[in-house]
Simulated scan of single mutants.
Amino acid sequence: MHVLLNDERQECDMPLTVAAFLSQRQLLTPGVALALNHQILPRSRWEEHHLEEGDHLLLFQVIAGG
């Protein structure tokens, strides 16, 4: 299966949750947020949401401030 992570094509096995995908790539770190197919996916759902062929993930660092 192929997905896009920050516009780079990634190959992965099926079925795979978002959390497992990020963990395999050592990207499951505090302070990051994720958009899946252009919608924010709450971190509380990363363990249950399975990736599908062609999904587009955008992983970014959360910055606090004012």
Score class of each variant (00 low, 15 high):
residue 1 M to P: 02
residue 1 M to F: 09
residue 2 H to Q: 13
residue 2 H to E: 08
residue 3 V to T: 02
residue 4 L to C: 03
residue 4 L to E: 03
residue 6 N to Q: 06
residue 6 N to Y: 08
residue 6 N to L: 07
residue 6 N to C: 07
residue 7 D to N: 14
residue 7 D to T: 14
residue 8 E to W: 10
residue 8 E to N: 11
residue 8 E to P: 00
residue 9 R to Q: 10
residue 9 R to T: 09
residue 9 R to L: 10
residue 9 R to N: 07
residue 10 Q to L: 01
residue 10 Q to T: 04
residue 10 Q to Y: 06
residue 12 C to G: 05
residue 12 C to V: 01
residue 13 D to V: 11
residue 13 D to F: 11
residue 13 D to C: 05
residue 14 M to D: 00
residue 14 M to K: 02
residue 15 P to K: 07
residue 15 P to L: 08
residue 16 L to P: 00
residue 16 L to G: 00
residue 17 T to Y: 09
residue 17 T to Q: 06
residue 18 V to Q: 00
residue 18 V to A: 04
residue 19 A to K: 05
residue 20 A to E: 03
residue 20 A to G: 08
residue 21 F to P: 03
residue 22 L to C: 02
residue 22 L to A: 01
residue 23 S to C: 07
residue 24 Q to N: 10
residue 24 Q to D: 01
residue 25 R to Q: 05
residue 25 R to G: 00
residue 25 R to P: 02
residue 26 Q to E: 10
residue 27 L to T: 07
residue 27 L to S: 03
residue 28 L to P: 05
residue 29 T to P: 04
residue 30 P to H: 14
residue 30 P to F: 15
residue 30 P to K: 15
residue 31 G to L: 09
residue 31 G to S: 07
residue 31 G to P: 02
residue 32 V to Y: 11
residue 34 L to R: 02
residue 34 L to Y: 04
residue 35 A to E: 15
residue 35 A to Q: 14
residue 36 L to Y: 06
residue 36 L to M: 11
residue 36 L to E: 01
residue 36 L to T: 05
residue 37 N to T: 14
residue 37 N to F: 14
residue 38 H to E: 15
residue 38 H to L: 14
residue 39 Q to L: 13
residue 39 Q to I: 12
residue 39 Q to Y: 13
residue 40 I to T: 12
residue 40 I to F: 15
residue 41 L to K: 03
residue 41 L to M: 06
residue 41 L to N: 01
residue 42 P to M: 10
residue 42 P to L: 09
residue 43 R to A: 06
residue 43 R to Q: 10
residue 43 R to M: 03
residue 43 R to W: 04
residue 44 S to R: 11
residue 44 S to V: 14
residue 44 S to D: 10
residue 44 S to T: 15
residue 44 S to K: 12
residue 44 S to F: 09
residue 45 R to A: 01
residue 45 R to M: 05
residue 45 R to W: 03
residue 45 R to Y: 07
residue 46 W to I: 01
residue 46 W to F: 00
residue 47 E to K: 05
residue 47 E to N: 08
residue 47 E to P: 02
residue 48 E to K: 00
residue 48 E to P: 02
residue 49 H to T: 07
residue 49 H to G: 02
residue 49 H to F: 06
residue 49 H to E: 03
residue 50 H to P: 02
residue 50 H to W: 10
residue 50 H to I: 06
residue 50 H to K: 06
residue 50 H to L: 09
residue 51 L to I: 01
residue 51 L to P: 02
residue 51 L to Q: 05
residue 51 L to E: 00
residue 52 E to A: 12
residue 52 E to T: 11
residue 52 E to I: 04
residue 53 E to D: 11
residue 53 E to N: 10
residue 53 E to G: 04
residue 53 E to R: 08
residue 53 E to C: 05
residue 54 G to E: 07
residue 55 D to L: 09
residue 55 D to E: 10
residue 56 H to I: 10
residue 56 H to K: 15
residue 56 H to L: 12
residue 57 L to N: 01
residue 58 L to I: 04
residue 58 L to T: 02
residue 58 L to P: 01
residue 59 L to D: 02
residue 59 L to E: 03
residue 59 L to K: 04
residue 59 L to T: 01
residue 59 L to V: 03
residue 59 L to P: 00
residue 60 F to L: 08
residue 60 F to H: 08
residue 60 F to S: 05
residue 61 Q to S: 13
residue 61 Q to W: 11
residue 62 V to Y: 14
residue 63 I to V: 15
residue 63 I to H: 15
residue 63 I to G: 08
residue 64 A to D: 09
residue 64 A to W: 14
residue 64 A to I: 13
residue 65 G to F: 15
residue 66 G to M: 11
residue 66 G to H: 12
